[in-house]
């Protein structure tokens, strides 16, 4: 481990201590199994996502972390042949139950994807789009909500004067923060991020990470990342998954310095994966 790595571990340890406040469980996943047709992709996964904390999911490609994320807002329901069994409780309510309205669920559980996908409309409309459909807001309030979302996504400074330009004209990093703004404009309770910085340069990655830090104390955030340093930098808890199983979950500092499972330790120290 080099000096930077050691410094990171220290800062993680420091942060873990300052967050001594009791945790509230926002999402409680119990015995979740997931199938793509006959392929068994998640095997009896159980874990809890605390509110106002960032939980990072890592593991080799195909380990099921993206699948797990897509279960939490039932994105998988779009695709025939995919099904989930078990329970995912969002504030004690099982969201896998057919009685749950997926539209309402997606207002509460927002998602940001790996590839930034600005809609073919202006910057303002990109953020206002979901909002308009979710609630009938007067124009002035809508504008306020859009501005707040853009500020929270650390994008307002850069796009405040080009709200009416096409969202597709922004840079890659700005586009991804626009997607974050679009998601938080709906004021969800949970934010899912599926490798949000995998396609970004280091500076843009840093800006997105700062954005997540700003949001951390208001939302329950789950992020999938292939970048170990990123997990170490931004998350409070880290879950390590392997071949569809949840191997280990715990405070990030502990996972990175004193993993219980040999496979976790091998992964975070770069010996495999």
């Amino acid at each position: 481990m080099n000096d930077t790595g050691r410094f990171q571990r220290l800062s993680i340890a420091a942060r873990a201590e300052e967050d001594a406040a009791p945790l509230q469980i926002k999402v409680d996943i119990r015995n979740l199994d997931f199938y793509y047709g006959h392929q068994h992709s998640l095997k009896s996964v159980s874990l809890q996502l605390p509110d106002k904390r960032i939980t990072a999911f890592m593991g080799p490609s195909g380990c099921g972390k993206s699948t797990l994320l897509r279960t939490l807002n039932r994105m998988y329901a779009l695709y025939p042949g995919q099904r989930a069994t078990g329970e995912v409780l969002l504030d004690q309510q099982n969201i896998l139950s057919p009685q749950v309205d997926v539209t309402q669920l997606r207002y509460r559980v927002g998602m940001v994807f790996q590839k930034a996908t600005p809609f073919p409309m202006s910057v303002f409309e990109n953020v206002a789009f979901g909002l308009r459909l979710a609630s009938r807001l007067p124009a002035s309030e809508l504008a306020d909500r859009v501005e707040t979302a853009l500020r929270d996504a650390a994008l307002w400074e850069e796009v405040g004067d080009k709200l009416h330009e096409d969202g597709r004209g922004l840079s890659g990093g700005q586009q991804q923060r626009l997607c974050v703004a679009r998601t938080i404009a709906l004021q969800p309770e949970v934010i899912l991020l599926d490798e949000p910085t995998a396609a970004l340069d280091p500076i843009s990655t840093l800006r997105v990470e700062e954005t997540l830090q700003n949001l951390r104390d208001r939302y329950c955030i789950a992020i999938v990342t292939h970048n170990l340093q990123q997990a170490a930098r931004i998350s409070d808890f880290t879950a390590f998954m392997y071949l569809g199983e949840l191997v280990e979950v715990g405070p990030t500092a502990k996972i990175f310095t004193a993993a219980r499972d040999r496979r976790t330790d091998d992964y975070v120290t770069g010996r495999f994966g």
């Binding site: 309402q104 997606r106 927002g110 994807f113 789009f129 459909l133 979710a134």
Partner: peptide, 9 residues
């Protein structure tokens, strides 16, 4: 997917 994730029909 991004549109669907915003709860859009």
């Amino acid at each position: 997917d991004a549109s669907t994730a915003l709860g859009v029909h």
